[in-house]
Each structure stands twice: as C-alpha cells, then as structure tokens.
C-alpha cells in the first residue's frame, strides 16, 4: 500500500496541537515541560529560534522533541508564536548515552511553507569526548557539524535552527 502523502501543518495548528500554550480553551496533550523543574533539580532548558532563508525568525513553526534513552522517554512540543523573539523553549533532563553514542534529542520541525516535516538532532556542547567519537556526528561534513550542537550557558542550552542557506542546519533522512 502507498504511504499517505504529507501536507503542510499550515499557519493555524495551534488551537489543536498547542492549545494551552496559545491560550485556547482546549486541553493540551503535549507541551514543552517534559519534566517538572520543581521536582527535578537536574532540569535543563533548551531554547532557540527557527530562521528562514532570509535570516528572519519564523513565528509559526512547531517543534517536537523526542528523547529516548535507557532512563527516560520524553516528548515535548512547542510553537514559536508565543514567546519573545519567536523562541521555543523545552524543560527536560539531559539525555544519557545509548550504546556509546553521544547523547541527543530527536527533533521534528513543522511549519507553514513545509509540505513535509524535517528531522534534525540536538547534541550537547559539553559532551566533548562522546561527540568526538559519535558515528552520526562524524558522518556529517566537519564544517556543518556545529549546526547540530547546542551551546551551553549554565543549565540552559541554545539551539537555533536555520532552514536554508550557507549556515543551514543539518537535516536527516531517517
């Protein structure tokens, strides 16, 4: 049987997919608080913006992150239309290494203007040793590897996504 084709998420997803974040009267099934910061002293934040090919932050993207290791399976979802500067932010714990790989989160990106979603990964700047030996990171051209690595500032990591152009983020065919 043939796969059902993808279509764009469009500009009006928020009242169904991220309703509480956008203050609609409908319960959210998923949000960006993947662990409760009050109960988890190890909570990190991952924040960033999504830029189009003209360098403009995209105000109507939806970012999903999936973190699956031997300790946690956590899912988060955040739209870029409510926070200052069109940021997304996730609250989670840092993933752990699986089978010697560098720890990462899987990312799925949706937006108006994408007829089919994109996949990328978030690695962590402070995992120097594992990042150096990681098979996936080493399969990426060396001058683009940094696009997959979040920078660290205390307990907060910054990860910007650049959809197009010279500084384009690495996207995966998974």
């Amino acid at each position: 049987m043939k796969q059902t084709p993808s279509q764009t998420v469009g500009p009006y997803f928020a009242y169904s997919l991220t309703p509480e974040q956008y203050l609609y009267d409908f319960k959210s099934y998923a949000d960006s608080v993947m662990v409760n910061p009050l109960e988890n002293p190890d909570t990190i934040t991952i924040t960033g913006k999504v830029f189009d090919g003209a360098g403009v932050p995209i105000p109507d993207a939806m970012i999903e992150v999936w973190q699956s290791d031997h300790q946690n399976q956590l899912f988060g979802r955040c739209g870029t239309g409510t926070l200052a500067d069109n940021r997304f932010v996730f609250y989670t714990t840092k993933p752990t290494s699986v089978n010697g790989q560098a720890p990462y989160l899987s990312v799925i990106i949706f937006m108006r203007g994408q007829l089919i979603h994109t996949y990328t990964r978030i690695y962590f700047e402070d995992e120097v040793t594992l990042n150096e030996t990681d098979e996936v990171l080493n399969s990426v051209p060396s001058d683009r590897k940094h696009t997959l690595i979040a920078t660290k500032n205390g307990n907060s990591y910054e990860f910007n996504i650049i959809m197009q152009g010279e500084k384009e983020t690495v996207f995966f065919d998974i």
Binding site: F75, G113, Q164, E168, V170, D173
Partner: peptide, 22 residues
C-alpha cells in the same frame, strides 16, 4: 521558497530514538 532546506538531507542510520516514539 524561503523555508525549504537547500542542502541534501543526510541519511541517518536508525537507532533507539527513531525506533521508539511517544
């Protein structure tokens, strides 16, 4: 036009996070 990736996608070997989901 301004939102489509312009570089080829990198093929990724599926691992634990691709073989699981929420």
């Amino acid at each position: 036009v301004l939102r489509a990736p312009s570089k080829p996608l990198m093929v990724l070997k599926q691992s634990l996070s691709e073989l699981t989901g929420p």
